[in-house]
Design a binder for these strands. Structure first.
Lengths: 343, 343
DNA sequence: TTGAGTTATGCATACGATTGCATAGAGAAT
DNA sequence: ATTCTCTATGCAATCGTATGCATAACTCAA
């Protein structure tokens, strides 16, 4: 790594931050530490003289006192931190969707005065180790995005850590996700209203529950109308093949529902290169609604999953679990169709 | 909010996670808690009999013991958590760049076995309150992305919390960023090699240090060649105006450097709508390199800031500060030109 | 002027792990 | 038998805050 470094200006840093404690304030003022703690937090049921109160407030201000969150957490048994477990594969630059999820979660946490701790693991990190990291008391609750149900989900469920799975349904955990079938229905009704009948589906080659649900909903919708489903694989990394697969059908589909936005954009790109006109030769619908249209050259028609509402709901459920209330095992958020220029 | 909820299946959750402690193991086995702690962590200098060791390991496994990270943090005085302070404005969906920064940081933290805690604040949260949240002991070190130097940066510097600013240079704190001038030079040399002379610059209407540095570098480069700089404002939200401003110049620029990728993409979109052919009528260069080309219809020529290396460097500096070493006040990472189809 | 009721405050423990120091017991050496 | 060295383990303090319970000082009515 070549860094151009200015060697003249260095910052000596002794590594030790001198944090003032409530005891220091108490000693300086000749009162007890309990008094300092109670005055500063205005604990109900305890009255202090205006004089004492004033002296403590002033001294705390003067010494720049900040209660140590780690100590409070230990004492109170809660940290006001929510964890988010995402898999390493989601660091894939194409997974713009994960960025949107993190942003939404962060926004929601902000509103309830909690912090978001990102638990990210390399793919080779074992499940016991992940569980250990998640259940070591650093977080009060957890949001997970898992590909599918499995030993990790089951381990988390067993641990007793209040957890909600988002996006993908996971049998062992309460989950909040998009009503995938409703989304597919919106997309297809939109296409049908525009005269399309030969509608294909570009399905995910990854084993994602949500992707599977979308695909199945598509098949149901087609069969329900007595039309033959046409499914082509779509891997993000090779949408030329997807396009060829569409073209090799006869009769050729006039529209295609893609299992997510990224695949839709990749396919759109393949169409551009291949001289296929969108939407005239082929209409394209995405699913997720995570990319701002201003970043794209053409507004993408897509099913907006509304991640913000999913995040809100997930965090709300967690808060209820922390209060000991029961929560619905499955929560669906209705998606919205966002009509763009690709249909 | 309309959620379709399955009311039949509820999850009663008592909210209390029964965590087993080292004391419980000790009591169950009739050994001291210290012994359990030392055996499980293999503390050097302490030898235990194979029998005791075996019993403890087995019992810990059986009871699913996980050392409480909050308690260790309190005792050890460090949390192994790195904070990231980002401003609320960066929740703007257009700020794809922040997603890339978070991803890079997370990746880097993963490698050194630390966790990343997102400190996000609403715009109206006061600086004292932000400082309080940052210095309450939850994190060992901090990465900040600030718009510019100011009271917050100074407060953080005063607090003694090991901190590195990224992307924007900040006078009060050590910082790691892109060598903006080198990046602009790369972009302009590329354009000039393609025969462009009338090169304009689309500058940011936001008060970002990095954006300012890019703009100044552009002016320097132009003047150095005896050419007159042409600067047009670019706000992301209204690039039509930017395009008009370019057209109203005479002679008209044949190329434009945009202060970042998002503005370049917005401008590209405006060109498409206005029937301006890129790169024939106008060549466009971006800056940041955060969007994967596969998401775009045409590969964008851009200056890749290499966020991953900036994150690596920032975290490495923090680790050195924690060890009490001194670090360079200013670190530059050299950007790379990524040539696409817009030039 | 004594007991009841307030007001204002302190003592001491708990949260769970880490760690410096002490020590009991087993051999070994003198 | 006495001292000495290990080996293997325990005791107790500490990190900083929160909180149940106790209590001193003061007011007030009887």
């Amino acid at each position: 790594m070549h860094n151009s470094i200015d060697p003249d200006i260095n910052k000596p840093h002794n590594g030790t931050i001198t944090k003032t404690t409530s005891r220091q304030i108490a000693d300086r003022l000749g009162v007890s530490q309990a008094t300092v703690s109670r005055v500063l937090r205005n604990v109900p049921g305890y009255q202090y003289s205006a004089k004492t109160r004033g002296r403590i407030l002033e001294e705390a201000e003067r010494m720049g006192y900040r209660p140590n969150a780690v100590a409070s957490s230990l004492r109170e048994g809660r940290t006001h931190v929510i964890g988010f477990h995402n898999q390493h594969s989601e660091l894939d630059p194409l997974n713009i969707f994960m960025a949107e999820v993190i942003r939404s979660l962060q926004q929601t946490c902000l509103e309830i005065h909690h912090l978001l701790l990102l638990h990210n693991f390399a793919p080779d990190v074992s499940i016991p180790h992940r569980l250990a990291e998640l259940t070591c008391g650093r977080i009060d609750a957890l949001v997970v995005h898992l590909q599918e149900n499995g030993p990790l989900a089951e381990g988390i469920a067993l641990s007793g850590l209040p957890t909600v799975a988002i996006a993908n349904r996971v049998a062992s955990l309460p989950s909040v996700g998009c009503d995938e079938a409703a989304g597919i229905r919106l997309a297809m009704e939109h296409l049908i209203a525009h005269g399309h009948e030969r509608i294909a589906f570009a399905y995910s080659t990854y084993p994602l529950e949500a992707a599977k649900a979308r695909h199945e909903a598509y098949i149901t919708e087609m069969e329900h109308r007595g039309w033959k489903p046409v499914s082509v694989p779509c891997s993000n990394h090779d949408t030329d093949t997807t396009l060829q697969a569409l073209h090799s059908q006869s009769p050729q589909p006039t529209a295609v529902c893609c299992w997510n936005d990224v695949s839709a954009l990749c396919l759109l790109r393949a169409c551009n290169r291949a001289g296929v006109s969108v939407p005239d030769d082929l209409a394209i619908v995405g699913f997720d609604g995570v990319l701002d249209n201003r970043l794209l050259q053409r507004n993408l028609t897509t099913v907006d999953v509304q991640w913000a509402r999913i995040s809100d709901t997930a965090v709300e459920l967690l808060m209820r679990m922390l209060r000991g209330e029961s929560v619905p095992w499955v929560t669906n958020v209705l998606p919205k169709l966002r009509i763009g220029e690709t249909t």
